[in-house]
């Protein structure tokens, strides 16, 4: 067990927490935060898991940087959409409308 594997384990736990939040919470901002937590978990795993090199592996670091940029873009888009949705409908969750009775993000 190396410290970086510990990071990976923590990442897995964060992933689980995020997934749970994304599926079970109904407030859209909470869903978005849950997505970010899950994303962080994935990034931790990505950095922590590779054990091929002695010392830190530069490749996953670069990947995670890119990943963070993508996640920020997605979060920004989501915030804009949620805000406009809130202004238009006065609601902060997807439930409660006739055509969304199936619920959930799927």
């Amino acid at each position: 067990m190396t410290p970086s594997l510990l990071y990976a384990m923590a990442g897995a736990v964060l992933c689980g927490i995020g997934l749970f939040g994304l599926l079970r919470l109904s407030h859209l901002l909470r869903k978005l935060l849950a997505f970010n937590i899950m994303g962080s978990g994935v990034f931790l795993i990505m950095v922590g898991l590779p054990q091929h090199h002695v010392g830190p592996d530069p490749v996953p670091q670069a990947l995670v940087l890119t990943g963070i940029v993508v996640a920020i873009a997605a979060t920004a888009l989501a915030v804009v959409l949620i805000r406009r949705y809130y202004h238009q409908s006065g609601m902060a969750s997807l439930e409660g409308e006739a055509d969304s009775r199936e619920g959930g993000p799927l």
Binding site: G18, M38, V42, L81, S89, L94, S100, P105
Partner: peptide, 18 residues
């Protein structure tokens, strides 16, 4: 309605990407 559909789409797409 369009916004709701797009948010739902976004959440599904993000989960899939992760």
């Amino acid at each position: 309605n369009a916004l709701r559909a797009s948010i739902r789409y976004l959440l599904a797409a993000l989960l899939g990407s992760l």
